[in-house]
Design a protein around this nucleic acid. Structure first.
Lengths: 193, 193
DNA sequence: GAATAATCGACCGTTTAGTTCCAAATAGTT
DNA sequence: AACTATTTGGAACTAAACGGTCGATTATTC
């Protein structure tokens, strides 16, 4: 029973890779089982359905992302640099945790209820994080904002706007530079002159 | 009728990308059709089956590879450098033309007759190219070989040996350096001291 | 050696995907 | 405009694939 949980994690890890390569639809239980050197039916001893595995994968990736972002936030750097790093980590993590990313942004998966929940959860978390950064920025005099809650919402909306066109086109060189440029635009309306 | 051929090429181009992303099996006619903004059944006006499209894709990629390699061979560089470039172009092209690559090396596709044909064709072509390079190398005194035909066979066998382990593991940085190192090993038995 | 945990092959019902067919749309010709 | 040839795609067919179940079987634990 201790081992059972451990093996569930193994399944999540393996499935994460396969899902991220082929997507939910094209990934088969047989493949997941084969990756773990088990029979297909054995997998059902640990999870009740493919969907449940996917859900666990999303949860896992969300956790990873949250940890990465939290680490950035904790830094004692100045708020502007933190926000900058926050955006970059967010983008890079999404690249890795592509299932979570697709869950949040892909319309193909709309029919899963837990996806919608996850989206809301993600939004709330992100807004809270951003708000915290902004709040610290205001307190230290780096940022110039009246209502950090509202501002956090606005920043997140802007980030989402940057994000999509960035992912639809080829992930080529110079992505960091472009990211910086876009963040700059965001900043110069925020940073105290 | 002129346009028909043009559109067949469009299908090949589009399918090449999809096949290379998802493989033959996971690629659906619907996806191919959607990529070309056509109904699924319209594709059958141009090709008789999914397999036939795949075959055309392989042929196309083989042609591209052959051209790339031929260009290298034609260079007036010294034979050693040519052979070196040949190997690199070969490896890099394979990365791009992954359908052809998979057709040649993947065991999942063994059941297609035309794959076997393609393999043989590729082998013959490659041996001829290598032999030509070796022959020029011998003539110019760079290489030290009795029977270039036999030597070409040996070199190709060696290349195949390098190739697979190189592809199974992560395509990470330093691949060029490792390639050079491996080629060196091959060379020091060939190049005249 | 019984009891429990874990694995697996065979099977089922449903869905998917390759392919065919045909009618409709479109383009080309006279 | 009428007629023909080319091109398209919706609907239907069929075989295969897939998610999931079940009962039997094999490890493992006590």
């Amino acid at each position: 029973m201790v081992d059972k949980e451990k093996f569930k994690e193994k399944i999540v890890l393996a499935s994460s890779k396969i899902f991220s390569r082929y997507g939910f639809r094209k990934t088969t239980m047989e493949e997941i089982a084969a990756a773990l050197r088990k029979g297909k039916s054995s997998i059902y001893y640990y999870f009740n359905s493919k969907e449940e595995i996917f859900e666990a994968v999303i949860d896992y990736e969300a956790q990873v992302l949250k940890n990465e972002l939290a680490k950035v936030i904790k830094s004692t750097d100045d708020p502007e640099r933190i926000l900058r790093r926050y955006v970059k980590v967010r983008m890079n993590s999404f690249e890795k945790l592509s299932n979570y990313y697709n869950a949040i942004f892909n319309r193909d998966l709309d029919h899963f209820e837990f996806i919608e929940k996850q989206r809301e959860k993600y939004d709330r978390m992100e807004i809270a994080l951003i708000r915290y950064v902004l709040w610290r920025g205001v307190r230290s005099g780096h940022f110039n904002l009246k209502n950090t809650g509202l501002a956090a919402l606005a920043v997140q909306t802007a980030l989402k706007g940057i994000e999509l066109p960035l992912f639809w086109q080829k992930r080529s060189y110079g992505i960091d530079a472009r990211l910086d440029a876009t963040i700059d635009i965001l900043f110069y309306g925020i940073v105290r002159k």
